[in-house]
């Protein structure tokens, strides 16, 4: 006899799935990977592969044998976390350090809270910041990029040097005028096309923006978080620059240097650790923008965007509590 299935409406389901969203982000990261291989050679591939594989292995072991929630690597979130962490690392980082970073990211940052959807902090950033504080020397000896058209770099044969932000904070400490400093740095076209040192994902602003546009088109993310971060950074640093151009650098420098673009587009938009409502997302973005500039200019570390995101992650529950979406018919109710 025919057994009818009975359930509540809706009886039709959309085509969204966790996998689709996660792989959407991974696809958006591919142009950046290509750009970084071009500039950093084998190192970019070695670091990315190590991070992705170890992330999948850790996730598999923990979800299957410790949490016993079945195998969850299929949803792509572990691979994504690994890849994002790799993009936050220099391309010459020793393999054992990468594995420790991934361990912290996946095991402590994500699975210890119960797996996907439960972690309060962005796991990739937890791993990155852990490495940055524990092994500051290795984590800040950035390779100097060299385009593959000149020489295709091997994993270890890189020359290291400071990043733009490192140069800036050095200059600030020495009391150098920012006007003079900004003449020393490469022009913005060079910065956007990648000829600056930094971690794997910080290279090539054009590739980052291409990924951003792809994710917007696929509706993986909305514009609210990245745009609010970037515009806050721009406005805040512009105000500072107007106050004292000798002491503070021009706003474009902050926008395009370091991990600003990468973090705004890929790290801050992590679903689990960002607010739910559009209003909340804008507040979150503004907070990250302000904190980043504060840390960059007055903090001990030259780069502050990771710390800013982690700090704002902690405020997400309270943002969700107070930043509600506008209810239908609400304005009239209050009158």
């Amino acid at each position: 006899m025919l057994k009818l299935i009975v359930s509540l409406s809706p009886h039709q389901l959309g085509k969204n799935s966790v996998e689709k969203l996660m792989y959407g982000v991974i696809i958006a990261l591919i142009p950046i990977l290509i750009a970084s291989v071009w500039f950093y050679g084998w190192g970019a591939i070695v670091v990315s592969l190590t991070a992705v594989i170890s992330a999948i292995v850790f996730e598999f072991l923990i979800s299957k044998y410790i949490l016993k929630i079945g195998n969850t690597i299929g949803d792509g979130s572990a691979a994504l976390t690994g890849l994002l962490l790799a993009f936050n690392l220099p391309s010459n980082l020793p393999i054992w350090l990468i594995i420790i970073g991934v361990f912290v990211a996946i095991v402590i940052g994500k699975m210890s809270f119960g797996g996907l959807g439960n972690n309060p902090f962005n796991p990739a950033l937890v791993g990155r910041v852990f490495l940055l504080i524990s092994w500051p020397v290795q984590m800040t000896s950035w390779p100097i990029p060299s385009p593959a058209s000149e020489k295709f770099l091997g994993y270890t044969d890189v020359v290291t040097g400071p990043t733009l932000l490192g140069q800036m904070s050095e200059a600030m400490r020495n009391g150098e005028s920012m006007k003079v400093f900004s003449d020393r740095i490469p022009n913005y076209f060079e910065i956007l096309t990648g000829s600056v040192g930094g971690s794997i994902g910080e290279i090539a602003g054009f590739a980052l923006i291409a990924g951003f546009v792809y994710m917007l088109a696929r509706k993986v993310i909305t514009w609210h978080i990245p745009i609010s971060i970037l515009s806050t950074v721009f406005i805040f640093s512009r105000i500072l620059w107007l106050v004292n151009p000798e002491k503070f650098i021009i706003p474009f420098f902050h926008l395009f240097s370091g991990g600003m673009l990468f973090s705004a587009i890929f790290m801050a938009t992590d679903y689990v650790t960002s607010p739910m409502s559009k209003k909340g997302q804008i507040v979150f973005g503004v907070g990250i923008g302000i904190l980043t500039i504060v840390i960059r200019i007055w903090g001990a570390f030259p780069e502050g965007v990771s710390f800013a995101i982690l700090l704002m992650n902690a405020t997400v529950p309270i943002i969700n509590m107070y930043m509600k979406p506008k209810r239908f018919g609400e304005t009239i109710k209050e009158k």
Binding site: M1, K3, L4, I5, V6, S7, L8
Partner: peptide, 22 residues
Amino acid sequence: KKHTEYDGALNCTIQHNLYGGE
């Protein structure tokens, strides 16, 4: 005997609200 198959949130009140049961 079960005549239908309930497929939804596993909560009695929800099923009760939907129909008489399997």
